[in-house]
Amino acid sequence: MEDMKYEDVNGDSKESRLKYHDGSERTVLVTDIEIPYPEGRLIVSSTDQNGVMTHVNKSFVEMSGFTKEELIGQPHCILRHPDMPPAAFKDLWDKVQAGERWQGYVKNLRKDGAYYWVYATVIANIRDGKVKGYTSVRRKPSRKKIQECIELYPTLF
């Protein structure tokens, strides 16, 4: 994945270096701007077994700030916000690879450096008894739960 570009970012940003599970690294630029979750929508995406995006719905595209073409073929962790503890994603992968569903509150990073909170459910797509990929469905979280995560997540690094 390419580093984020200053020309894509809106507002004052802070730079952060993220390390991913496969050992790769990327510089991300984050702002303090929160984008509210759109009412009544579901944000849906699917990946292959390696977490590379194969499907994104319209709400996903709109909230991410990327185009559909920019997203398909990219690793899902393109949305990872540096405020998210790596332990949360380890738990996610451990669970879904074992065929269990994972649910949790996630702060996602947009292309423009802003962020949005979601309540995500991730499940394995099982076809003929084999895991073919993963689907994630996000819905609007409550502010109370977001506040709990804002307090908890910094303690998990």
């Binding site: 579901l42 849906v44 699917s46 499907h55 569903r101 459910t121 991730v122 499940i123 797509n125 076809r127 689907t135 994630s136 469905v137």
Partner: peptide, 14 residues
């Protein structure tokens, strides 16, 4: 068939 399998996965997730 994959269309219906995908919708079922979504329902499962919900």
């Amino acid at each position: 068939q994959e269309d219906i399998e995908f919708m079922i996965d979504l329902m499962d997730a919900l």
